[in-house]
Write a protein that binds this DNA or RNA. Structure first.
Length: 279
DNA sequence: TCCCAGGCTCTCT
DNA sequence: AGAGAGCATGGG
């Protein structure tokens, strides 16, 4: 059975269907994105300069409000990675019975293709930090330095933040990470770290480029590459995934999952974290 | 209160 | 090259 998603314009919004198993909530709340907010059954967010709200319709479909079908084709389809056949990937990695437990739990997750700078900056903030506080720092960063729109604030550009000092960042209470944010903004804005180049680089070289930034190590780099640059072989190793890998696989990702390491990683991460690894 | 958080840098062997 | 302390802040 071939996979192909359908995009349909309706008077309410754009419906995306035929996705196979899909979970908007797991996708938006599994620790890869930090700005989505749930109100009732609707999720909303500002991505770059676009305001979006969306809602799950069925196990295999969701609706996007406030956007046209052209917007979906031009932007949101890639953002939600709808063109990738996750069903067949889930089936392949489920050949390992322990990975299968994670797939059974949250196999409707999609790896988002988020804006590169926002993703990099967000995961710089994430280091040695907890998710509620990461979200708070990012929100303050946006309200202090983003652009105001009718629906809220945008994520500030690298160019905007490159003009600031660490003292300027004190209102966001990022702690020791403030100097890393400034260094990242300056190197990205000046193209000393060149996103256009990184997009076309193999994983290992791309990681080394990002590590030119102070406060960016393997883990932060791999998060940016996986969730921002669409490099699905990136495999961020944080405390949770290390714990899960040790406990579940003796430290080594099963060979069945290697080709889809990043996708498998996020599903194992979400499973481990939400079940407190109570296997 | 104390421990810890989707780590990284710096220093000391 | 490998280990360990320190880092800012605040949620639980």
């Amino acid at each position: 059975m071939t996979y192909y998603p359908k995009i349909k314009n309706t008077k309410n919004g754009v419906i995306i269907s035929n996705l196979g198993r899909f979970s908007l909530a797991d996708t938006l709340d599994c620790g890869q994105a930090f700005r989505w907010q749930l109100s009732g059954s609707r999720w909303s967010c500002i991505i770059e300069n676009r305001y979006i709200s969306a809602e799950q319709l069925s196990d295999e479909s969701f609706i996007i409000y406030n956007q046209t079908a052209d917007d979906v084709i031009a932007f949101w389809g890639d953002y939600f990675d709808i063109y990738r056949d996750y069903g067949s990937i889930m089936q392949k990695i489920s050949a390992n019975s322990i990975v299968k437990q994670s797939v059974d739990f949250c196999g409707g997750i999609r790896i988002l293709k988020q804006p590169e700078w926002e993703t990099l900056c967000s995961f710089i903030i994430s280091q040695n930090n907890n998710i509620p506080r990461i979200k708070g720092i990012i929100e303050r960063l946006c309200t202090e330095f983003g652009e105001e729109t009718a629906f809220g604030f945008t994520f500030p550009s690298a160019e905007r933040l490159a003009m600031l000092t660490t003292d300027d960042l004190s209102p966001i209470r990022a702690g020791f990470r403030a100097k890393y944010i400034i260094d990242a903004a300056q190197k990205v804005a000046s193209r000393e770290v060149d996103f256009e180049k990184i997009k076309n680089l193999p994983l290992d070289d791309a990681r080394e480029e990002l590590k030119k930034i102070k406060g960016v190590g393997n883990k932060v780099a791999d998060c940016a590459l996986l969730f921002g640059f669409g490099k699905t072989k990136a495999f961020p190793q944080d405390v949770w995934i290390k714990r899960a890998m040790d406990k579940l696989f003796g430290g080594v990702l099963p060979s069945e999952a290697e080709e889809y390491a990043g996708i498998a990683q996020q599903i194992i991460f979400h499973y481990a974290r939400t079940t407190k690894l109570d296997i």
